[in-house]
Write a protein that binds this DNA or RNA. Structure first.
Lengths: 339, 339
DNA sequence: GTTTACAAAGGTATCGTTACCATGATTAAG
DNA sequence: CTTAATCATGGTAACGATACCTTTGTAAAC
């Protein structure tokens, strides 16, 4: 591909300026704040830029202005649909605004997250978006020192560090469990993800336990199973749960992925849902309304989380308030037929 | 968060140099090619960098060296698990090598892809990874002019432009259809995605048609339905297909997402799979082995695609060959119980 | 012991843009 | 009609790193 002609120095602002018969700085202005140059020159500059196929060198601009027009995003995993969707939505909002996304996945490891933050900070991102509120002290310190706006998404803490956009996973899990109780289920098992470094899952588990407690119910003996969020683990977890607890009448899965695994296993084992066993999930992934029976679950406004997070960043970057604040987007219990 | 003390000029290489009692250039070398400085000074520099919490300014380095250590990746959509997985794998390989990923989604639009390429090019990426081989002429020209290595993934063209890592979607679809024919199915319907700007899907459709033709079979009247890749569209497409073609005995879905939608609709309508209707998919997503019945499908080595693509980029960036070439990773027919 | 080779370290210029300040032109205010 | 205020434009320096070249020191070769 690369044709070897000459060193082919790339077209710079100076070249465009010469072509248009103006100063370099005017080209800069024409391209980044068009309303600050006269229509006449603006047109000339644009024509010249087009003619020379000028591509600005962002690195140079970043070096001088200390603004990279990059937003760094770190999620636990990109390969989970809920995070992929969030990223996609954010990307769609940042793009037209001229910002690009630097994406990393921590694999639920705080060390890896810290290492990513360190690496990303070297690119002077204009903002950083992290998942959850659980981060290493160094991570937080690094970001504070760099004076980079921080938006934490997906879960709501007691005290915000900076901006937070999410829902109360505790409240949502509690509400869902209450529904189960209200419907008359009494022996409710829990299937969730590992709690390490995952405050979303941890809060869901707590919300579940809180609902049982306030109803005077107990968590069944060995009624809690935790496995990574994969379909097959839902299936396995159910088997495990049932082998320990034959008279379970309901299962709360802290993620639809697990819940769907549970439903599939029920189908395999011929367990009728919800007659023999009620199953509820969390997230409301696309598939949840197509399972049989359709899954009762908690709808998390995940696109809205992405959208608001991105909008908050943009607002902040154009001079918005820097006060720490929590944006609670709320959840919704979606009753379908699995409970 | 941002504490307003003083302008807090950030720590530069010069500061580290002063602290370590060496020249700035030595710091540069110590950090980027440690084996080119004496162990003694290396240690001193590292200590100084640590003490001052030095963070390199990549923009400055990029400006000077014309190397950004950024790789741009454009996929049609991030929110589809197969692309999310590919991205995750690539990200995992690039990260330890010191490269970061700039990710964009084109929404299956060539114009949007072109616009993304234009925007990304301004960041002087060290390589660009695109999905499929169908791109606008300008896109290709832009990349060629910028002399940026290009890797195209997921599908294999006749003539490679640069590096290609993928599978033959044509061959795979053909092989799958042949299997259906070999098993005795004769009235085979097709459910696929829209073909515009999607050479993967297009080649699958062609492969399907080719297999029927070589067996002397015909595509059933109105036996082809195309809808965006969503579960619900699989369900809808099946209904549509069946209403036009009551004696269909098999359905080839060009994506597991659609196939799973089909399976769910079969369950709803009480159609026995595979006895009344065989269903096969394409991709082998995680869920495919958990449906009931488990889905017969084409396994696409999508993690391997991501891995190889990333490795090829790294190889190329450390001086590897620049000859255009195709890396065909092959596919596998996974026979489960849905056909 | 002298010459050659090579490694280690430093000096300086430079990448391409934008911040900052200055200038001249135009308009508004008195 | 003068003065101030505002706008459009330009000149220059600087952001922080690395490429390139030079210098110095040490080991190898004869």
């Amino acid at each position: 591909m690369a044709r070897k002609t000459e060193p082919s120095r790339s077209v710079t602002m100076r070249d465009v300026a010469a072509e248009a018969g103006v100063a370099a700085i005017t080209v800069s202005r024409a391209l980044s704040s068009p309303d600050r140059v006269s229509p006449h020159l603006l047109e000339k500059v644009q024509a010249a830029a087009k003619k020379l196929q000028y591509t600005p060198n962002i690195a140079a601009g970043t070096l001088r202005s200390q603004k990279s027009r990059i937003v760094a995003v770190i999620v636990p995993t990109i390969a989970h649909s809920i995070f992929a969707e969030t990223i996609q939505v954010m990307s769609g909002i940042f793009r037209p605004a001229g910002y690009h996304l630097l994406i990393g996945h921590s694999g639920y490891s705080l060390e890896e997250e810290e290492s990513l933050v360190t690496a990303f900070l070297a690119r002077k991102p204009d903002a950083i978006i992290l998942t959850g509120y659980t981060h290493s002290a160094t991570t937080i310190d690094l970001i504070a020192r760099a004076e980079v706006p921080l938006v934490e998404i997906w879960n709501i803490p007691d005290e915000p560090r900076d901006t937070v956009v999410g829902i109360s996973n505790f409240d949502a899990a509690q509400a869902m469990t209450r529904l189960l109780i209200r419907k008359g289920y009494r022996k409710i098992g829990y299937i969730g993800g590992p709690r390490e470094n995952n405050d979303r899952v941890e809060q869901r588990e707590r919300g579940f336990a809180a609902a049982l407690q306030e109803a005077g119910l107990e968590v069944p003996e060995r009624g809690i199973v935790r496995k990574p969020l994969e379909f097959e683990n839902g299936a396995r977890a159910l088997t495990e749960l049932l082998s320990q607890n034959s008279e379970l009448d309901a299962v709360f899965a802290a993620s639809d992925i697990l819940a769907i695994g549970v439903l599939m296993e029920c189908q395999n084992q011929g367990i009728r849902v919800p007659e023999q066993l009620a199953v509820v999930g969390f997230d409301d992934v696309g598939l949840a309304s197509y399972t049989s029976p359709p899954l009762t679950t908690v709808r998390v406004p995940r696109e809205e989380i992405g959208r608001r997070a991105a909008q908050e960043v943009l607002k902040r970057l154009s001079g918005g308030s820097t006060e720490p604040r929590i944006i609670d987007l709320g959840f919704e219990i979606i009753e379908r037929r699995s409970a």
